[in-house]
Design a protein around this nucleic acid. Structure first.
Lengths: 235, 235
DNA sequence: CGGCCTGTTGATGCGACTCAATTCAGGTGG
DNA sequence: CCACCTGAATTGAGTCGCATCAACAGGCCG
């Protein structure tokens, strides 16, 4: 038991949300955290349900989705290891705004609402980190909103590829490759479209020499063209 | 000067973000706040600029917009008196995510970033309020994202009307009227469309007997039909 | 009166979703 | 090892929603 808690504490140290916290805070968080694992394709929480707490993803891949009555679904966010999800619902009296589902086998830490709120009032640093985290989320959502309303699919795809490239290599240049973290069908749902359209759009980008596609690895051949398309230039 | 500060302090008491704060916190906030007024059609801040601080709208109407190179614009949010805007950029090291513009003559209070961050660490209650505010913003944005990706214009319009009705009357029923806070062109930009399409959609809702339109006052005639349309039922 | 802005209505075209058929890859079991 | 099945990806044809372009009516104000 002691060992397990120490492990948890060390793991927490490397989570962005908890960076810079003192030992006593980390210890309290470790005591609070509950290990919860989810098999592939299982649901972690449902949109509209009362929030019990939030999660940190240790290992695996999670999608946060909105779905419409007639079966279509939109992926709000893909959660990668080290990131948190379900935070928003903990802090206001609101329900989970989306459904969370494990796309791979997942290991998470769960933080119950009440206990976490206590820690939050006790630790100004934690509160600051939380505010920063939520600000970045907000920023991300505004970007998505902008893209969906003002840009067409080819622009959104180009933006996505450039962003991923920057994230994976720190820069954008010719012949750098981007590995898609999910299937193309999922990517389509993330970009607010459907797999058929994504397929056609990828083919179009390939035909103008902007990219090269093999399986789920996409290689950027012409960054300039891609940038121009991402800014709304017609493809 | 003393009088002015006392006035400011009293005004702050009724802002949601500051509710439940102690006198000393309010006083510090009042000392920090700077009165800034903006004439109609003037810009308050620009997307992409470094955030200096955030604002509380005391009087007037503000739109937060994203605009594309080719002139189209999308209204992220309409800010009403008592609400804050520009908060997100203060807490993470990010720039303003949208442009703020006064749609009417506006009176605001401005809170410089550095000073506010100090207060934030000193007052757990303020931090909690801030987190709750941002959570609600996040919730609102996720709803917008959902609507834009999964619903068509008629559904979005119906949702908007129902929401406004609930907000203005506390309930939804036949013969309740909704007063649009902005021009129809602005509403169109808020719903992610253009004025022509909005005009046609309103006409269609009117022709099926769901609503009645006079100037900027819209009366709900058939709540059931409206609800059905808002959930994606074809109009 | 003559601009100017808002709103409405019509005709047209484009982007993207739908439906359907086919191919392909991965995994399973005989 | 091959036959089989399932889900993913691709491609084509048809349709629809909505943006675009254009013309015009009404209200407001200098």
């Amino acid at each position: 038991m002691e060992e397990a808690r120490l492990d948890k504490k060390e793991a927490l140290r490397h989570i962005y949300l908890f960076s810079g916290l003192g030992d006593s805070d980390l210890e309290a968080l470790a005591r609070l955290a509950v290990r919860r694992d989810f098999p592939r394709d299982s649901h972690i929480f449902w949109e509209g349900r009362e929030a019990q707490g939030f999660y940190i993803l240790l290992e695996g891949l999670v999608k946060l989705v909105k779905s419409s009555p007639d079966g279509k679904e939109f992926i709000m966010r893909l959660v990668m290891p080290g990131e948190t999800f379900g935070e928003a619902a903990v802090l206001a009296e609101i329900n989970y705004p989306a459904t969370a589902m494990a796309l791979e086998d997942c290991q998470t830490l769960f933080f119950p609402k009440a206990g976490f709120l206590n820690l939050l009032t006790a630790s100004p640093k934690l509160a600051r980190n939380m505010l920063a985290t939520m600000s970045r989320l907000l920023f991300h959502l505004t970007r998505q909103l902008e893209d969906l309303t003002l840009k067409e699919v080819s622009s959104r795809l180009a933006s996505y590829l450039l962003e991923r490239c920057r994230e994976q290599h720190g820069r954008v240049a010719a012949d750098l490759s981007v590995e898609l973290p999910v299937t193309k069908t999922h990517l389509a749902a993330y970009l607010g479209t459907i797999s058929e359209t994504l397929s056609r759009t990828l083919a179009r980008l390939k035909s103008v020499g902007a990219i090269q596609v093999e399986k789920s690895k996409i290689t950027i051949k012409d960054p300039e063209v891609l940038k121009s398309i991402s800014q709304g230039g017609k493809s």
